[in-house]
Design a protein around this nucleic acid. Sequence first.
DNA 1: CTTTCGTTGAGCATTCTGCTCATGCTCCGG
DNA 2: CCGGAGCATGAGCAGAATGCTCAACGAAAG
Lengths: 153, 153
Amino acid sequence: MDATDARILLALAARPRATVVALAEQLGLSRNTVQARVARMEQGGALGSFERRITPNALGHPLTAFVTARVDQRRLAEVSEALAGIDEVVEVFGLSGETDLLVRVVAADAEDLYRIAGRILAIPGIERTATALAMRELVPHRLTPLLRRAAAG
Amino acid sequence: MDATDARILLALAARPRATVVALAEQLGLSRNTVQARVARMEQGGALGSFERRITPNALGHPLTAFVTARVDQRRLAEVSEALAGIDEVVEVFGLSGETDLLVRVVAADAEDLYRIAGRILAIPGIERTATALAMRELVPHRLTPLLRRAAAG
DNA sequence: CTTTCGTTGAGCATTCTGCTCATGCTCCGG
DNA sequence: CCGGAGCATGAGCAGAATGCTCAACGAAAG
């Protein structure tokens, strides 16, 4: 990932459906170069799966909540697997510090969320949880600032 | 977003670079239909920005951390703006419950993270913060399970 | 019954893709 | 100083995809 790659990504962020030819022209690069770099990024894991672009909202799950949990560390693998078994669990991190887990959850409505929180709490190995509803997205997910910096360097 | 849309998204999740023609064939739909639906989803906000597919890791920021913060509610707008001014702040949620804010941060290394945490804490209106390092991604971001459910229904 | 909406198949000109080659440039090790 | 290695480039080519439009059809809604 050098500055050129970052520039390509920036252009793509602005217009996801831009063709390779368009990108090449816009960036003053050869079509071949862009094609190679995009392929390399796609291959080398610089780009995550397409799923990341899908809004849970569109799937009828407008609510997002974060469940923090303390777990019996010896049963972490077990807990992790159980969490992965819950469809509405979208992302789970193992944390340092007070709480061991951060579980990102989406839900259709408040009742749905309650149900899911219950399922999480019922997982053997989980000792205590706290659920916080995401009421507002103050800064929507973005990487442009970092991209810009990388593109400049 | 009906079941057909979900099926299209599932196919796309499996092969992001699949062409419309390929999708149509795979799903037994007309090319026209797929093209219309994809366009509609892209237009209607079912798909978030392309940036979501970019791994911070590829940009030289392999570390992810979550900073929770209590803020002076009357200065929320101000705080939010200041957070948006920090490049490494990738996402911010306003939460219900104990803590007011959840700030998702990426960093190049531990020292970088320390610096960023400092910048956040220095924001006027922020009263207390706690930083938790994401040590492991136990369940990587995914939407497939929900998609599958939507595709079945 | 009639309107509306989404799907479908067809067609067409334009454009893009995927791939290969040879060339030229720059950086690095010998 | 010379010989790679790695990357960007320009060219070329066959095949495929795209964007768009049109007319027909069925189902669901009014």
